[in-house]
Amino acid sequence: MYRGREGQWAFIFHRVSGLAILFYLLVHVAELAAAMWGPQYSNAILGFFHTPVFRLALLGIIAAVLYHALNGLRIIFMDFTGWGVKYQAKIWYGVFAVFLVIYIPVLIKILPEIFRGH
Protein backbone atom coordinates (compact mmCIF):
# COMPACT_ATOMS: atom_id res chain seq x y z
CA MET A 1 0.00 0.00 0.00
CA TYR A 2 1.44 3.35 -1.02
CA ARG A 3 -0.71 6.15 0.37
CA GLY A 4 -4.19 4.65 0.35
CA ARG A 5 -5.86 7.64 -1.27
CA GLU A 6 -8.11 7.71 -4.36
CA GLY A 7 -5.26 7.40 -6.86
CA GLN A 8 -3.90 4.30 -5.13
CA TRP A 9 -7.28 2.56 -5.19
CA ALA A 10 -7.89 3.62 -8.79
CA PHE A 11 -4.57 1.94 -9.69
CA ILE A 12 -5.31 -1.27 -7.74
CA PHE A 13 -8.81 -1.61 -9.23
CA HIS A 14 -7.42 -0.93 -12.72
CA ARG A 15 -4.80 -3.64 -12.32
CA VAL A 16 -7.10 -6.28 -10.82
CA SER A 17 -9.87 -5.60 -13.36
CA GLY A 18 -7.32 -5.76 -16.19
CA LEU A 19 -6.04 -9.17 -15.05
CA ALA A 20 -9.60 -10.49 -14.72
CA ILE A 21 -10.48 -9.25 -18.22
CA LEU A 22 -7.34 -10.81 -19.75
CA PHE A 23 -8.12 -14.15 -18.09
CA TYR A 24 -11.70 -14.06 -19.36
CA LEU A 25 -10.52 -13.00 -22.85
CA LEU A 26 -8.36 -16.14 -23.15
CA VAL A 27 -11.19 -18.40 -21.94
CA HIS A 28 -13.68 -16.61 -24.21
CA VAL A 29 -11.57 -17.03 -27.38
CA ALA A 30 -11.06 -20.74 -26.61
CA GLU A 31 -14.81 -21.12 -25.95
CA LEU A 32 -15.69 -19.64 -29.37
CA ALA A 33 -12.94 -21.61 -31.15
CA ALA A 34 -14.96 -24.76 -30.35
CA ALA A 35 -17.19 -23.72 -33.28
CA MET A 36 -14.46 -25.08 -35.59
CA TRP A 37 -15.26 -28.62 -34.40
CA GLY A 38 -18.94 -28.31 -35.28
CA PRO A 39 -22.30 -27.60 -33.63
CA GLN A 40 -22.33 -30.52 -31.19
CA TYR A 41 -19.14 -29.39 -29.39
CA SER A 42 -19.84 -25.68 -29.79
CA ASN A 43 -23.39 -25.85 -28.41
CA ALA A 44 -22.26 -28.03 -25.48
CA ILE A 45 -19.56 -25.56 -24.47
CA LEU A 46 -21.74 -22.47 -25.05
CA GLY A 47 -24.48 -24.13 -22.95
CA PHE A 48 -21.97 -24.69 -20.17
CA PHE A 49 -21.23 -20.94 -20.15
CA HIS A 50 -24.97 -20.16 -20.02
CA THR A 51 -25.40 -21.78 -16.60
CA PRO A 52 -26.33 -19.27 -13.84
CA VAL A 53 -22.93 -19.47 -12.13
CA PHE A 54 -21.08 -18.45 -15.30
CA ARG A 55 -23.65 -15.79 -16.20
CA LEU A 56 -23.18 -14.22 -12.74
CA ALA A 57 -19.41 -14.37 -13.21
CA LEU A 58 -19.87 -12.73 -16.61
CA LEU A 59 -21.70 -9.85 -14.89
CA GLY A 60 -18.53 -9.44 -12.82
CA ILE A 61 -16.44 -9.33 -16.02
CA ILE A 62 -18.81 -6.74 -17.50
CA ALA A 63 -18.32 -4.64 -14.33
CA ALA A 64 -14.53 -5.04 -14.67
CA VAL A 65 -14.61 -3.95 -18.33
CA LEU A 66 -16.80 -0.93 -17.54
CA TYR A 67 -14.55 0.23 -14.69
CA HIS A 68 -11.36 -0.42 -16.70
CA ALA A 69 -12.74 1.56 -19.68
CA LEU A 70 -13.90 4.56 -17.60
CA ASN A 71 -10.76 4.67 -15.44
CA GLY A 72 -8.66 4.24 -18.61
CA LEU A 73 -10.23 7.45 -19.92
CA ARG A 74 -9.31 9.09 -16.59
CA ILE A 75 -5.69 7.97 -17.09
CA ILE A 76 -5.67 9.45 -20.61
CA PHE A 77 -6.99 12.77 -19.22
CA MET A 78 -4.26 12.68 -16.55
CA ASP A 79 -1.55 12.02 -19.15
CA PHE A 80 -2.56 14.69 -21.62
CA THR A 81 -4.20 17.50 -19.64
CA GLY A 82 -3.24 19.55 -16.59
CA TRP A 83 -6.77 19.56 -15.21
CA GLY A 84 -6.80 15.77 -15.48
CA VAL A 85 -4.01 15.64 -12.88
CA LYS A 86 -5.43 18.45 -10.75
CA TYR A 87 -8.88 16.86 -10.52
CA GLN A 88 -7.88 13.16 -10.79
CA ALA A 89 -9.47 12.26 -7.41
CA LYS A 90 -12.72 14.03 -8.29
CA ILE A 91 -12.73 12.39 -11.74
CA TRP A 92 -12.38 9.02 -10.02
CA TYR A 93 -15.63 9.66 -8.15
CA GLY A 94 -17.05 10.68 -11.52
CA VAL A 95 -15.90 7.30 -12.89
CA PHE A 96 -17.98 5.57 -10.20
CA ALA A 97 -20.99 7.80 -10.85
CA VAL A 98 -20.94 6.98 -14.59
CA PHE A 99 -20.25 3.32 -13.76
CA LEU A 100 -23.41 3.11 -11.63
CA VAL A 101 -25.53 4.99 -14.19
CA ILE A 102 -24.58 2.37 -16.82
CA TYR A 103 -24.22 -0.76 -14.68
CA ILE A 104 -27.48 -0.61 -12.68
CA PRO A 105 -29.63 -0.77 -15.87
CA VAL A 106 -27.39 -3.63 -17.07
CA LEU A 107 -28.17 -5.54 -13.84
CA ILE A 108 -31.89 -4.77 -14.19
CA LYS A 109 -31.79 -6.21 -17.72
CA ILE A 110 -29.63 -9.31 -17.12
CA LEU A 111 -30.35 -10.51 -13.54
CA PRO A 112 -33.99 -11.46 -14.32
CA GLU A 113 -32.79 -13.43 -17.39
CA ILE A 114 -30.47 -15.46 -15.16
CA PHE A 115 -33.04 -16.16 -12.46
CA ARG A 116 -35.81 -16.99 -14.94
CA GLY A 117 -33.44 -19.74 -16.00
CA HIS A 118 -33.17 -19.15 -19.76
Binding site: L32, A35, G38, P39, S42, N43, L46, H50, R55, L58, I62, V65, L66, A69, G72, L73, V106, K109, I110, E113, H118
Partner: peptide, 25 residues
Protein backbone atom coordinates in the same frame (compact mmCIF):
# COMPACT_ATOMS: atom_id res chain seq x y z
CA UNK B 1 -13.62 1.56 -25.09
CA UNK B 2 -15.86 1.61 -28.17
CA UNK B 3 -15.04 -1.85 -29.60
CA UNK B 4 -15.43 -3.81 -26.34
CA UNK B 5 -18.41 -1.90 -24.93
CA UNK B 6 -20.06 -2.20 -28.38
CA UNK B 7 -19.35 -5.95 -28.35
CA UNK B 8 -20.83 -6.33 -24.84
CA UNK B 9 -23.88 -4.27 -25.85
CA UNK B 10 -24.58 -6.41 -28.92
CA UNK B 11 -24.11 -9.77 -27.18
CA UNK B 12 -25.60 -9.02 -23.73
CA UNK B 13 -27.98 -6.06 -23.92
CA UNK B 14 -29.46 -6.14 -27.44
CA UNK B 15 -30.19 -9.88 -27.01
CA UNK B 16 -30.39 -12.40 -24.19
CA UNK B 17 -26.85 -13.83 -24.19
CA UNK B 18 -28.22 -17.30 -23.32
CA UNK B 19 -29.64 -17.42 -26.88
CA UNK B 20 -26.12 -17.45 -28.35
CA UNK B 21 -25.50 -20.80 -30.04
CA UNK B 22 -23.44 -22.31 -32.86
CA UNK B 23 -25.65 -20.81 -35.60
CA UNK B 24 -25.39 -17.31 -34.10
CA UNK B 25 -21.59 -17.56 -33.71
Amino acid sequence: VFLVLGHIYMQNIAINSAEINYDYV
